[in-house]
Design a protein around this nucleic acid. Sequence first.
DNA 1: AATGAATGAGTATTCATTCAT
DNA 2: TATGAATGAATACTCATTCAT
Lengths: 219, 219, 219, 219
Amino acid sequence: MTDMSVSKRIAIVGSEEATVEKTPDRASDLLAAAARVFARQGFHDTKVSDIVGEAKVAQGTFYLYFKNKQDIYFRLVSGCCQRVLDHLAAASAVRKQVKTANEARENSLRLMIELFRLLESEEAILRLILTDSSSIDPAIDKMLISLKEALVEHVELHLRVGIQDGYFRQLDTKIIAQSMVGMVYHLSFERFVRGRDLGVPLEQLAQEIVNFEYQGLLI
Amino acid sequence: MTDMSVSKRIAIVGSEEATVEKTPDRASDLLAAAARVFARQGFHDTKVSDIVGEAKVAQGTFYLYFKNKQDIYFRLVSGCCQRVLDHLAAASAVRKQVKTANEARENSLRLMIELFRLLESEEAILRLILTDSSSIDPAIDKMLISLKEALVEHVELHLRVGIQDGYFRQLDTKIIAQSMVGMVYHLSFERFVRGRDLGVPLEQLAQEIVNFEYQGLLI
Amino acid sequence: MTDMSVSKRIAIVGSEEATVEKTPDRASDLLAAAARVFARQGFHDTKVSDIVGEAKVAQGTFYLYFKNKQDIYFRLVSGCCQRVLDHLAAASAVRKQVKTANEARENSLRLMIELFRLLESEEAILRLILTDSSSIDPAIDKMLISLKEALVEHVELHLRVGIQDGYFRQLDTKIIAQSMVGMVYHLSFERFVRGRDLGVPLEQLAQEIVNFEYQGLLI
Amino acid sequence: MTDMSVSKRIAIVGSEEATVEKTPDRASDLLAAAARVFARQGFHDTKVSDIVGEAKVAQGTFYLYFKNKQDIYFRLVSGCCQRVLDHLAAASAVRKQVKTANEARENSLRLMIELFRLLESEEAILRLILTDSSSIDPAIDKMLISLKEALVEHVELHLRVGIQDGYFRQLDTKIIAQSMVGMVYHLSFERFVRGRDLGVPLEQLAQEIVNFEYQGLLI
DNA sequence: AATGAATGAGTATTCATTCAT
DNA sequence: TATGAATGAATACTCATTCAT
């Protein structure tokens, strides 16, 4: 179910479907196996031998494609981060046309749903990112901080536009952007990592959050 | 000499100064040392020898007071959790008198500030809890989940009261409570773990959040 | 392109230039590459992958021509030994005509110079023999012992002849022959392996040694 | 039979001989064990597990006293070198009184015998030094070069004095000193490492060499 | 209680060698 | 012949834990 789109992008153009079932791409096999094992056991309790066992390749094969355990972990996490960032960039492109509060709200809702859907599809790696990724490698820390900052930046821009266009009140964009990102992180953790759906489908979850963000608690 | 309020807050106000200068409490020494070393290096990069080195006791002494490395970590984290829970219980007791939206808002602000102050004083252990604590010990996972659920429960009750009393709109209390806890977790992480104060004093930070919670983004 | 005279000195003088530019002699390529890499890194720090890398052939190709790493090392060393032994045999043939002390001395000088010249041309492999070759393979040990014994034998014969012919004093030919071989080994090491020329050209070095051998230290 | 005098220098002054039999000095045990195993198998074929097996201590104990395999080897070799250098220094002190050729010759003989006796007592480590020590550690290479240079320096001084005092002929002291050291190295190798006594007792061996050095081959 | 030397299980990583193409 | 991906045996080193003193 994971989407290890790293390689294995086998163009099944038409002919010879027979070869499709067996394109021996060790790097992809290992990446997919690692995602499964890491998600199950966490980074620190995963041995390289677990990964190669899961991927059904020899121990030495691992080191043909990855420098070490941190390396494969990093590639897993950075792949996921990249996909989220790509999604964000695509979303940013669309935002331009927003003029009114209602348009902004609809836009926010749509983005929230799309983001949740993306995260849902990255469940296994999201689990790693949200529970496991500290102190493994400085490069990983840096990447995750970058990701978060990109999200905050995205939200902040959205807020500044709203304030400028007069439909958001004066507020500290830094703080509120951080708060909003915090909500999303935490709800993603509950839903996709802990598996607690909070009794609602994804779309409704997004709706509730957007309502809360826009209107607050008061009647 | 210890900077850890973990235990032994023995106020020997007048008598027996002789024992004061050197309270030979190895357990406290070790806990304090462990807090410092864990905060600096994280759980996985900390050796028992680092802790005993910092505490200036012998290797074997460690095992006189703690079953193993997980044990001392657990005690550190559970101590912190307990203090937060105690604080929460005290806060709950006070809430009863709230009647109007304004009272609720003032109450929320006060609680938020107090909570931030408490977390600020627990900085070292908070760092552990927010960056390091996964997959170390099931007991730790369980405790942290309990803590979070207690917080969510507390917020939810607050929300339900507000809805019942007519000053909060109809909303999914579970989702919104989770969202609000997510905000606090995330802002605490940014401020106390990453050391980013977002350009404002603690009180103003709390004010911004409470405003956002109550009014939302819209004008 | 190879700098190794090890084998395949195929002089294709006139016909078929096409094959000349690229004599696809993998064995020679590998031997030459190995000599270079071994001289640079020593036997134990040289990987087969270093050799094939230097020779620009695939890993598997190595095992088409050599049983293993010891094998190529052995072939390198035994080639060099053989050339020294051949030289020695040639020298022995000439010695017969010596009658007087002066003739013997001239003969010794000439042989010494020739030997040094030969060793100079074998610098890379000499380095292996003199610094690296122990405990790699019993066959190598045996070969090097044979070489040394041949040298000692050669010297001893020279000494016995001199004694018999009355121009050398009574002495323990075994011990003195060993001593003389020891001198040559050691000076070769200093000069060709460590690169210390001791401030004199090769010819003068030989002259000094022969003087010392014949006259000793005393005035 | 080895003399691992590194530590274990237990002063058996008088009382309590009982404790002597069992002074548990792991470092010495390991050093002695390593000397035996290295001498038997050579550096590269010796595993740390071989050493701890021979010393009958646990694997981890090794790393309590030595950084790694190179470290224990280095300590073994440097101890031996130090003892040879100490011996040399003591010998240098005595030389001063030499005036005539005969005194020099007697002195040389005495020193040669003493040196051989010392080397004989260091047999196990001498084997390592003469067969095994290259390319293990730059520090070892440097130390062995220093040792050799100290020996050469010692001999050269001896030669210069003899030339100055008129009993040695004009000769290139550098080259001849190197030659003489080469003889000693080689004969030591044959006798102590290969175990070939060349049919004579040590004293006679020394006598033959000194005769050769002083008088040369000619009658 | 306190010590710290000793233990040994646990694991990442390398690299010679093979073999299907 | 030539290739180079795959193999997996081999081994150094760490560090939590014990226990005799």
